[in-house]
Amino acid sequence: MARYLAKRAVDRLLVLFTALTLQFLLLRVLPYYVMGIDPSFFFMNPNLTNEQRELIRKTFGLDEPLPQQFVKYVLSLFTGNMGYSFYTRRPVVSELMERLPNTIILLGTSTILVIILGLAIGLLVAMKRGTKIDTAVVSTSVFLNSFPSFFLGLLLLLFLGYYFRLFPTAGTVSRPVPKDPVRYIADYLWHLTLPLLTQIIIGVGGYALFIRSLFITQLGEDYIVTARAKGVDERKIMTKHVLRNVLPPIITTIALALPGIVSGAVITETIFSWYGVGRWLFEASLQFDYPVVQAVLFISVVLTVISLYIADIVIAIVDPRVRLR
């Protein structure tokens, strides 16, 4: 097991460094050296003299040779120094901290609800396979899973926000911000409803389908028939035989979903003008604000790698085939 985990750690670190290098190439090398776009032009006043421009470039360290920039970039990311936004000139970290709670609340709630609902619905229809409920759930799930989230978001905005005026159409809290903490929370939740609904509706269909097929495959395995023939009761078959076999793929999907709680949902946050990390990433990309882009991408890569490594450990504990090989 130790050898397996060591090997996995090396794999995961390799992934991290590949991602970092690609990020650097895509954000810093490709635009300037291949496409001829200097990101710094976007935030510099065109009336500045060349000397002033050079000075600004120098303050951001853009005059140094590329390899040196790369080393600096890696070192500063790992020491938590994310630099300054080109756009707002504020430290990336402090802007991140403003947006992070909103994203964690939206994505944390929706991710947990999608997993719980998906598990419950998927398990239910797997047990009732072939019935009308199953057919209904499967077709709805396929429909929802293929439904674009931006379109669903817009529909919800149009009907529940604009025609019926049940929910606000933009923002995280009302202006002016309510002073009473209870009213503040209520107002916040009111704003949260539509983006949360969008995230859940979009996510739950696919997850339920995944869980359903996972359980159906397991329940059809020969050893389940053997267990039934042995006279083991259904509940014990579920807990002892099925659950442990479906756990590894479920753990992996959860591990892959967790980093999203911090990196946010780009489309949903943008549509509902949610003051979160996903929308920030989207806006920063449009503005060539690459300190922001690379910070968000870096955090999501690091979290993905950590989260997958934890999944590796848990799976090794659950599955002897992984542990003993």
């Binding site: 020969d222 050893y223 053997t226 267990a227 442990r244 076999n245 599955d319 085939r321």
Partner: peptide, 9 residues
Amino acid sequence: SMNALNPII
């Protein structure tokens, strides 16, 4: 020889 035994028990 196939899958009559649960692989992880």
